[in-house]
Design a protein around this nucleic acid. Sequence first.
DNA 1: ACGCTAGGTGTACGTTGTACGCTTGTCAAG
DNA 2: CTTGACAAGCGTACAACGTACACCTAGCGT
Lengths: 249, 249
Amino acid sequence: MAGQAEEGRRVRLNRERVLAAAVALADEAGIDSLSMRRLAQELGVVPMALYKHVANKEELLDAMVDVLVAEIDPPAGGAGWKSAIRQRVLSARRVLLRHPWARQVLESRTRQTPAVLGYTDSFIGMFLAGGFSVDLTHHVMHALGSRMWGFTQELFDAPAGPKADAPAVPPEALAAMFRQMAERYPNVARVAMAAAHEEGSVVGHGCDDQFEFEFALDLLLDGFERLHQQGWTSRQAKPARMPPASTGT
Amino acid sequence: MAGQAEEGRRVRLNRERVLAAAVALADEAGIDSLSMRRLAQELGVVPMALYKHVANKEELLDAMVDVLVAEIDPPAGGAGWKSAIRQRVLSARRVLLRHPWARQVLESRTRQTPAVLGYTDSFIGMFLAGGFSVDLTHHVMHALGSRMWGFTQELFDAPAGPKADAPAVPPEALAAMFRQMAERYPNVARVAMAAAHEEGSVVGHGCDDQFEFEFALDLLLDGFERLHQQGWTSRQAKPARMPPASTGT
DNA sequence: ACGCTAGGTGTACGTTGTACGCTTGTCAAG
DNA sequence: CTTGACAAGCGTACAACGTACACCTAGCGT
């Protein structure tokens, strides 16, 4: 009578089922909808049942990151460090784009799970294998930063949540709003105008994120390559061609 | 008898006092401790009183970002785009370091307040004034990303919350843990070892964050300069020396 | 002296993570 | 087949959160 299950009924829960459901829920309903209660409901189970399979929500999120990492392609062999890293990063990016919640969760994580450490380790290994000194590797890893995961701090775009929440903008008031913005923020307006072919949105939508990402990635990789070829090995050891640090005034 | 106020007693609340208290609380107790209730308590007031001065917590956080932006030095004039931008970014970074919560809050913000737009606008203006094309400016702004705010996705360091939460690590078990890690993640271990002069921490503490930041910043700025000097103006207009995008295999 | 309004109060609701103890399903050993 | 133990799932409960809503009140212009 309680009518609890929708289908298969008594399929024992386990860690994988919990993780898969969590990822699916986050994919479909957004990370903000991922509460222990909601997840439990999705699994036809009482909230506290989850705690038999994950220690707490933090650990759940950590585990979800591990799922993510497992989706990234293994390093491609034999084509030189530059293209190997490029491919790896773009693979990571593809994963990230499949899971809109990934960026936010990755940013919030503070614990380094084995899977994350493994990814980092293999990533560092690619530079070392390419002949980079330990020091240079260290620095370029920092320079890559979150780009290692295939994402960038996107400062312009929408929260990617429930779409189409532009409820009832008066069709012409928008133009006025835009004109006012162009007046107050002329420079933003110029680049936004230039980039907005597709949508007539107010600010900077309609630019090719993938192009922007690869543009910056290649800029960095080229920089790395130059340093490496110039024999840069360590901060103090050989300031032959360090980035010219024009110190202040 | 109720013993409510600690000192000045009936000093009328206002928006500035609320904001200042919020910033101070976040600075001292960490952003996680900044709840409306805790903030109200800090001000000797009932939680709901705050809502007469800020619309809700989101707006509070937005306003806190505005406080931050106001602390960043105005653009330095007359020294060329490169050093102007460099100085501005490093000024932003100094602000960020004063307010440990800033990174997390900035990352979470989705609304562009006027102050944020103003900062972005002035930032874009520096590139344009330096002779960058609108398109190139667009791309380099993306490439800068969050570095515009003086921060990077620091993937290695601690949450910066309450310090010294290493409770009672057996003095020698740590060495064993480290040895095990070096075995499983040899590459991480190599760069961590090389960077750890100061502390004997397990992973990558004790590297010079400021150096890492400037290293990457200068790498990018140099890349921008090179593109600019080579006459790069637009994606399709002149592929004279685009970043060599070795597409896939 | 009056009354208007901005500012502060009190209560209450819904939602969150999760501690603790009880019950029940499942399987191995007797 | 019975039994007993252990893992899995349940139910209740609590503290903390953001905030809606109605109320009271202090201080000011008239």
